[in-house]
């Protein structure tokens, strides 16, 4: 295994483009090193991106949107009051990943690029309509977070391409988001089901909504029917019932050591209700 510490994105992308065998980017290492220790993946080329300028920064753009560097840790996000106020669901989702120790290292970008269908931050980012900036042989461009995972452990990033930042939109007035997951313990588990909701209200009525689900399909799901179920409502019981039904209907899960198919389908509905309520309350509070 060869270990590199490039000083720029161009250098990093060039290394990745010219490398043979298995290449991995190293940010927080909380997936890469686990896979290395367990002999699941031993990269031939390991590119540590933490020496690239700007990767540790959280920046609010002139338009109010956010740019989160690819080496920003979960702990650094939680400790950023303005980001946490604007996107509490995304920040809380990232904060749910692993322990305090993991939070000191793990990154949003790593959580996304690891390609796990159960990644906590990914449904929250999808609900938030986040995008990633990508550099590589095709030049710099943006890709929706929703379009990055393609299958468990796989992403749409081509050889030589790398994420250079995560972009969150500006938080609009009357907006709120939330993320909840179900795990058997109180901490330290991988999500059995995860649900992100981001919505806007006007006069108590939901005007826009995005509802996402994790760990219930090979990749994160953006569930349009679930959003439609609550748009136009005041999140009354009937809307919540429709939301839960739509969320459950969208699931395409597997039976595994973490949960059964029927359990995941049921809990997706339960979590959709609970998550939507939190997002709705936040949106109402933001609109006041």
């Amino acid at each position: 295994m060869h270990y590199h510490t490039p000083a720029s994105f161009d250098e990093a992308a060039a290394l990745a483009a010219s490398a043979t065998g298995i290449t991995r980017f190293l940010a927080g290492g909380t997936d890469v090193l686990v896979q290395l220790r367990a002999d699941i993946v031993t990269p031939d080329t390991l590119i540590d991106i933490k020496h690239i300028a700007g990767v540790h920064d959280i920046i609010q753009m002139p338009n109010g949107g956010w740019q989160i560097g690819i080496a920003v840790t979960g702990a650094e996000m939680t400790e950023h009051p303005a980001l946490a106020a604007a996107w509490p669901g995304v920040v809380e989702a990232m904060d749910l990943v692993g322990s305090t120790q993991i939070q000191g290292r793990a990154t949003l970008t790593g959580n996304l690029c690891n390609g796990s269908p159960a990644a906590d931050s990914v449904p929250a980012m999808v609900a938030a309509d986040a995008s990633v900036s990508v550099c590589g042989p095709k030049g710099a461009h943006k890709v929706a977070v929703l379009d990055i995972p393609t299958a468990p452990g796989r992403t749409s990033l081509a050889k030589g391409e790398m994420v250079t930042a995560i972009n969150l939109p500006a938080r609009e007035p009357g907006g709120g988001d939330a993320y909840l997951r179900f795990i058997p313990r109180t901490e330290m588990d991988i999500a059995v089901v995860g649900c992100g909701v981001n919505l806007r209200v006007d006069g108590g009525k939901i005007t826009h909504a995005r509802v996402s689900l994790g760990a219930v399909a090979p990749t994160v799901l953006l569930v349009g029917e679930a959003a439609d179920a609550i748009i136009g409502s005041t999140l009354d019981d009937a809307a919540l019932d429709r939301l839960a039904a739509a969320a459950s209907a969208a699931c395409n899960p597997i039976d595994d050591k973490r949960g059964t198919i029927e359990f995941r389908i049921h809990v997706a509905g339960v979590l959709a209700r609970r998550t939507a309520k939190i997002a709705y309350d936040r949106a109402i509070a933001a609109g006041e």
Partner: peptide, 16 residues
């Protein structure tokens, strides 16, 4: 701790 931040040393490379 790594620069004062709590981490698992099993998930940090020596080179880092």
């Amino acid at each position: 701790t790594l620069d004062g931040r709590l981490v698992c040393s099993c998930l940090v490379l020596g080179a880092e």
